[in-house]
Write a protein that binds this DNA or RNA. Structure first.
Lengths: 208, 208
DNA sequence: CAGAAGTTAGTGACCGATAACTAATCACGG
DNA sequence: CCGTGATTAGTTATCGGTCACTAACTTCTG
């Protein structure tokens, strides 16, 4: 296998590993093990752990932008808004690793200047791709991105929510329930592994 | 100094340290050093590093809820929406550590079930506090929280933005600028330490 | 034989946690 | 006022394990 192929493979494994453990919490050994090479060999493919992480950031946003572009197609305005929103919801279910890694990037950016710079650069690119390509109004742009960030957090905390416009209502109801039963919070464990197949909820959106 | 006082002090130091380095990236030694006690003594105040982190999570959301309650007062509807929004903007400028820590919590929640459970619990509490106390409509609730999450990310990436309704427009313009000059991205370093006093931008909101 | 792909061995530093010891405070009987 | 025993706040010493990274060696292929 060529070094370039290996590098791509390593980046994929790095995203999966970093998504779970974060930058500091993930050893280069587990990444190497995941692709089936020795740990020191990673340092011949990438100059440092940070360089590998940054390569993973680029890959992550490459995919994100590609997905948005695919969904946007020739649409614009509200049609595009709905199309991209739906696509992001699906991405959240189909490729959760990508979103978890995204969250790790934001956290890592706080004290690694190089990561912050790359994250900012790619966020600008993503924002501009969505805005320029689909011609949203600025207010809708911010709203779209903001809801995306909210969904990221809800997913990170394993909060169940309905997709689409019903989200706010369902989350509000969830919050009321969760806070009411604060005395017996053991029931929160029961749905820990039940979210694996709640992708079906995304289809429930057409009931709107 | 009593153990309880020390504990409170340690929690404060822990938030500051964890906010920068994250859970895995912060050693108990640096937290101990920050409060001026020996590292092993932390383990007499808290049973484990995780327990300390979780205590910090509680403190963080305690403060967050308190700030929102103060700002909400007897207001409701759109007036409350504006009051809380303004307060959150100010919090972003005045107490950035709290927000950086918040981001670390979301990232940490991904692979620590106990942190996730506490985060979910406190998010529900926060959501309910804002919703129940201020009587927002569900859609406004989600919008409020979503914009907050967006602001968190923008701050983490050091993206300059105008506060208030102008945000989306200013960020859109920023994205256009940033992406246009992608070939010479060295200028991105210049404003790295210029954000210390951009709190003045928050006052620019009344120009609306 | 040359170069690229990949390995084993090792290193110095650090980290969370434990164990055992010390110093100060305080209540209290004489 | 003094001694004294108990509780509490805090220390030093240390350990087993892990981590990013380096150096030197090997194996495969054209």
């Amino acid at each position: 296998m060529s070094a370039e192929e290996r590098r791509e493979q390593v980046i994929g494994a790095a995203i999966e590993a970093f998504a779970r453990g974060g930058y500091e919490g993930t050893s280069t050994a587990v990444i190497a093990e995941r692709v089936g090479v020795s740990q020191p060999y990673l340092f011949r493919l990438f100059p440092s752990k940070r360089a590998l992480f940054i390569a993973a950031v680029h890959r992550c946003f490459d995919v994100l932008e590609a997905r948005m572009r695919e969904a946007g197609g020739g649409l614009h305005g509200h049609e595009a808004y709905r199309a991209l929103g739906d696509r992001y919801e699906r991405l959240l279910v189909d490729e959760p690793t990508l979103l978890q890694f995204q969250l790790q990037v934001y956290a890592t950016a706080l004290d690694h200047e190089d990561v912050r710079a790359v994250g900012r650069e790619r966020w600008a690119s993503l924002w501009r791709t969505v805005h320029g390509y689909l011609a949203f109004e600025p207010a809708e742009m911010a709203r779209f991105m903001a809801v995306g960030m909210l969904m990221n957090v809800l997913r990170a905390l394993d909060v169940p929510y309905e997709a689409g416009p019903l989200m706010s209502k369902s989350v509000t109801e969830w919050a009321a329930r969760e806070t009411a039963g604060a005395t017996r919070d053991t029931c929160a464990d029961a749905d820990a592994d039940a979210d694996a197949d709640d992708g079906a909820q995304a289809a429930g959106r057409d009931a709107t």
